[in-house]
Design a protein around this nucleic acid. Structure first.
Lengths: 216, 216
DNA sequence: GTCTATATCCTGATAGAC
DNA sequence: GTCTATCAGGATATAGAC
């Protein structure tokens, strides 16, 4: 084990932490479980990260930064390619990257996708703050694009519907077996592109529904 | 303290557990924190419930049984009142009762609503099982009603869209301040009926989108 | 940088007096 | 039914040898 350098140890800890956090949640996952899974010493966590909280933050930022960068790149492409930017394409740029994690093992794969999905809705104070910090720019850019694509919709309605969309996306990311169970095996999420297409179709129709300003 | 009977102690424990579980999650909430908040003795939890796991289950079943009963009653009313049952009314019967918890303190109020919202997406194995057990009948009845209201849609698409809808609903239930923060105060969830109307409009449009069977 | 050993604290659970 | 006292184990974190 003396041949493995610091970089390897750090990555191994992050990988194991990601895996166990996704499966059991943050508070239920002990540093002992993480270091045992990673095959490193317990004290290595404190040497490399300082504390459990700092480790949690590192697990997220490692993946979220490139993911959000990809979202912005896709949105740029949508906005420059066509005159009339459709809600479909904007929403695809938003939900596509996290859902495609399922087949991108190098960026965390299904494990980080699930972790992100469950964390979006189950916010410990600490993790909530990490997310908001990483999410502000994304939220601003995408709501602006949607405002432009849906000029008839009041701005507050855009925010509400983005909120609903994030919930639908998060649930799709976090749940990999309940849907199959309840549908009696009818629904399978293995085909990522089909899932993205289903979700975008659903969200886009909801996004384009008439405003609810005048309540019946 | 000798004048408080067993019933009161049990209820006090359930109330405090509900509150702290909603705030901090199950594993991060200790029995000591619960009993301190409830003003009862630590050993009372084991006397009345047997274990922490059993307490978790009791916290849910106390609220979920009447809630799901209300959903079924509303669905019955929708199905008998009109010939053509609209997706709007079915979805309203599904998401209305949990969202109206916000102003029904006697049934858990905002606290249990938040707890339910976060637990729907963040499933520890144990709690996941409680939910599925309580949810099977509901899921069956509502998907059947939607199938009837949307005869053109493939059954698997109904399941997928119910899945998306549950995610949007759960996120709306669990988050009470991030939306306001990100929208710059533009969105306020205090008006429960307006929120339900917004959500139902969104979901219903998504539910009625063309099927995605033939992918482009 | 990595390890062992340990300090300190908190957890769920229980035994037994009242 | 309610209390005190306590058990046994696991948690984070750290000190110090190598």
């Amino acid at each position: 084990m003396t041949r493995s350098d610091a970089r390897e140890t750090k990555e191994k800890i992050l990988d194991s932490a990601e895996k166990l956090f996704a499966r059991d949640g943050f508070p239920a996952t002990s540093l002992r479980a993480i270091t045992a899974d990673a095959g490193v010493n317990l004290a290595a966590v404190h040497y490399h990260f300082g504390s459990k909280d700092a480790l949690v933050e590192a697990v997220f930022t490692r993946r979220l930064e490139p993911l959000n960068q990809e979202r912005l790149t896709l949105l740029d492409a949508v906005e420059t390619s066509s005159e009339a930017t459709s809600p479909e394409k904007i929403l695809e740029a938003f939900v596509g990257p996290p859902l495609r994690l399922l087949r991108d093992e190098k960026r965390g794969g299904a494990t980080f996708m699930r972790l992100m999905g469950r964390t979006l809705t189950e916010p410990s104070q600490q993790v909530q703050e990490i997310f908001i910090r990483q999410f502000r720019e994304i939220a601003g850019r995408f709501t602006a694009a949607l405002k432009h694509a849906l000029p008839g919709l009041p701005p507050e309605e855009i925010f509400w519907r983005m909120h609903f969309s994030i919930g639908a996306m998060a649930h799709t990311m976090s749940d990999t077996f309940r849907l199959r169970l309840i549908s009696g095996g009818l629904c399978d999420s293995a085909d990522v592109d089909a899932t993205i297409h289903r979700l975008v179709t659903f969200l886009s129709a909801g996004m384009q529904a008439p405003g609810t300003g005048d309540r019946p």
